[in-house]
Amino acid sequence: MKRHLISAADLTRDDAVLILDTAEEMARFADRPIKKLPTLRGRTIVNLFFEDSTRTRISFEAAAKRLSADVINFSAKGSSVSKGESLKDTALTLEAMGADAVVIRHGESGAPHRLATSGWIGGSVVNAGDGTHEHPTQALLDAFTMRRRLIGEEGAGLDGRRITIVGDILHSRVARSNVHLLSTLGAHVTLVAPPTLLPIGVEGWPCEVSYDLDAVLAKTDAVMMLRVQRERMNAAFFPTEREYARRYGLDGERMARMPEHAIVMHPGPMNRGMEITAQVADSPRCTAVEQVANGVSIRMAVMYLLLGGAEPARPAPAPESGAARRPHVGESRTEENH
């Protein structure tokens, strides 16, 4: 593992599998009466959110707290760009407070990269979503969900599985991170969207592209429906909400054409009636709620691996088992941060 998690594209297959396997270990604790681990006791993790995202923030917060880290929530909405404090001054402030890791959500693509490479802070940086660039922990929790549902085996990737991502690819950081990660894990990814919502240059991505949802659904193991903002209609990305829903929305009829085992995913929050009907959203094939739970496990795994917890991941009550196989995380933080 590297010191930061900025982009899913930076993860090797081994990195990704290690995170997924570690998340499985973390998930096992979630079922116990006492969910807390002492691993990151004394460490400080800052959730630095320049954009509102209660869901993502509480997921990171829950993850850090279950690892016994001290969590500071820094909501900096409105303090970016033109008014108030700059990203740099915010970073220097956090550094002065001794943040071991900064989880950053920012409206500008590249802001986490800038934070990690500018020399403003010494701690780890975790990208919790930057502009229309990436959202790597979302892709990891999606891959985790798929592996559980479609493979059910630790140590594995997603080899040969067919994943379809539908919707506003152009503006989606979830799609970008998923294309990188899923292809790294051996899956075949197909993006489906109206041509207006696909970026120029998408043909260079490690995936296929289709404008026709019905044509790909029958061969899909998992379909991921992206949230489509209604405002996009006003910028002429599509003519009307209804036309979008008809051509690219997932309803019961379409879902029925998917293979028996295929699952429906959604990163949330859902626009019921737009990209997904209530019938689909509430069906047992839809993993949206499961994804939320998995998100906590994945974020625990990421922070555990990045911060190289001093304590073993498992409480290891039986010393002779030595079971506390600590995942390989490179050197300790003190050696890394000069």
Partner: peptide, 12 residues
């Protein structure tokens, strides 16, 4: 606007 902007998620 091109392959790099698509990857970086910066408006083209």
């Amino acid at each position: 606007e091109g392959t790099v902007s698509a990857e970086l998620g910066l408006a083209g």
